[in-house]
């Protein structure tokens, strides 16, 4: 399985750490909404098909990535930085290099 890091390019999956389901919504840290915290910690959509997930390029640029991957075929349809601003910073860096 290859993941195309937007910064580093296509790299083997061994360079990445799976951070899990990207659909989960972390409640506000001050929130005391028990149900929302319970859902965040324990409940998973676990789809058979396209799955929205978070990976970290821990053996590379260390960026956190939002990956859409098919759990039936392991095919990856999109990879983006989790944070938009990280994306623009990375682009600037890439332009500097060029």
């Amino acid at each position: 399985m290859l993941i195309t890091c937007p910064y580093c390019g296509p790299r083997d999956v061994i360079e990445f750490t799976y951070q899990g389901d990207g659909n989960r919504q972390r409640p506000d840290p001050a929130s005391q909404n028990f149900e929302a915290w319970n859902a965040y910690v324990y409940d998973r959509l676990n789809p058979a098909g396209e799955h929205n997930e978070i990976w970290q390029h821990s053996g590379g640029c260390r960026a956190h990535l939002r990956v859409v991957r098919n759990t039936l075929t392991h095919e990856i349809s999109s990879v983006a930085f989790v944070r938009g601003d990280h994306g623009s910073a990375a682009r600037r860096k890439a332009e500097d290099k060029a």
Binding site: Y18, D21, A48, T73
Partner: peptide, 15 residues
């Protein structure tokens, strides 16, 4: 170590 229904895995675990 990642969600999968594929009944086949990848090489890092083999290694």
């Amino acid at each position: 170590g990642y969600n999968s229904y594929a009944q086949r895995g990848n090489l890092p675990i083999v290694d």
